[in-house]
Design a protein around this nucleic acid. Sequence first.
DNA 1: AGCGGGATTTTCT
DNA 2: GAAAATCCCGCTT
Length: 193
Amino acid sequence: MDMNWIKTLKSLQQPSCNVAPRLLGCELERTFGNKTVRVRIVETEAYSQTDAASHSYKGRTPRTDIMFGPAGHLYVYFTYGMHYCCNVVTGLEGEGAAVLIRAVEPLEGENILETQRRVQGISLTNGPAKLSQALGIDKQLNGHDLSLSPLKLVLRPPLEANMITTTTRIGISQAKDVPWRFYISDSPYVSKK
DNA sequence: AGCGGGATTTTCT
DNA sequence: GAAAATCCCGCTT
């Protein structure tokens, strides 16, 4: 295991509400054969086991199993009959915690994202199901180790707190008042302001 | 710009 | 059997 990833893991083995803002500005690197796509994370939400809005709230099930596993793996879920969304698992093993990636900005290989999505511009990656489709993420990558190809998480230096907006989460019916949504204030790719 | 409904299937009650 | 960590389209203003 390389040194950079050990450092990454250390920052992920913490409560999801600490990790979620930490992931802003970090990158995802997706490879398709010899082609590379890089994106920058600009919006996240934290979910934890004691949180009524979380899939892990009612305990470990076949669906949420990955959330309870080691940090630094990918939790992918299927919802509304047609969409995949992806999360970075956080916390210690046995804790059901993860950070939902809600929006990213293209950095490299935008044309490949466009091929997956069949749209252009902001709506390419400004939502959790949109970015998952753009990056070709589905159930096959559920449980994937994010230190490995074809999908890697690359940590970047933490952003200044004054660049980040903190709000309540989107699309949930429980724990609506918990302020666990974080986004880079000036990013045009944020799903909703 | 904002609202309302339909798509479509896994998951748990 | 109902709800779901969503998206897209069409309608109204």
